[in-house]
Design a binder for these strands. Sequence first.
DNA 1: GCAACCTTCATGATATATCATACATCTATT
DNA 2: AATAGATGTATGATATATCATGAAGGTTGC
Lengths: 143, 143
Amino acid sequence: MLSNVLFYSLDKAIKQYRRFAQANIDRAGIAITIDQWLVLRVILENDDLTQTEIGDRVFKDQASVARIIRLLLERGMLVAEALPHDGRRTQLRVSEEGQRILDAVHPIVLNNRRIALQGLSQEDNALLHQLLERIYLNCTPAS
Amino acid sequence: MLSNVLFYSLDKAIKQYRRFAQANIDRAGIAITIDQWLVLRVILENDDLTQTEIGDRVFKDQASVARIIRLLLERGMLVAEALPHDGRRTQLRVSEEGQRILDAVHPIVLNNRRIALQGLSQEDNALLHQLLERIYLNCTPAS
DNA sequence: GCAACCTTCATGATATATCATACATCTATT
DNA sequence: AATAGATGTATGATATATCATGAAGGTTGC
């Protein structure tokens, strides 16, 4: 039975949550995807990461991060300036427009989470995080 | 903190599991993606579904299913024949090659699940499914 | 039997994921 | 300082996700 497949249950929950969350952002008239939002948030919190480091934090490939950053630059949510000490990199900064969008998305994210977790106790929530982390570790090759 | 974001934890676990599972299939020299495998399995279990119905079961868009089916046909894992009573549809069947691949993937899937769930008790496992289902329902608009 | 509507499937556009690779630049070693 | 190796970024190819739409076929009501 497919429903016994762990992948299937996880995939089902995350996809529904993703659709729900994205729909609520869209409905608010905010032009950003969840993935772009994640990257933008990481850059806001730490603006001197490489693309690979950003990818580690948001669990994306460097190539995906590169393309998301390009979009965020094109749409004016990020600005870049050359770094004098390393010609390969640029200094990324969340622009005012980017900050405006982050501010607008924030309450929506909180509300999404609240609705998604309705009926789950604090202990359920903690256990869920713990189990997900355990699965993550189990699937992570020893390094 | 990003780690507080439900989406983030779910995304992290499912992505790592997906990479782990796909790597094990690749390592066995089997040329199929997890998503193709899911669709193939559903067709094996029920070969008279429309693309939309298949999509409902594997939690994919009809457009995604259409493209996955085209690939499965191109790679000889599925065969199609016209349905006399409805010119829009075709009868899909898992080919011998498709069955061979399903058989080869099966033990790998079981092993993936076993490893991913190491250290989780029966109750943990049941609770995980239950919590994921609850999140799914919470994110599903009343219909 | 025809018109209006619905279903099924295909496909274009855009975003993301993954792998591989190319290119530039930086660092370490000698 | 020159070179070898490591790092940072961009991009091509392929697969998938989502939305929108088009085209063909089916169904219903009249």
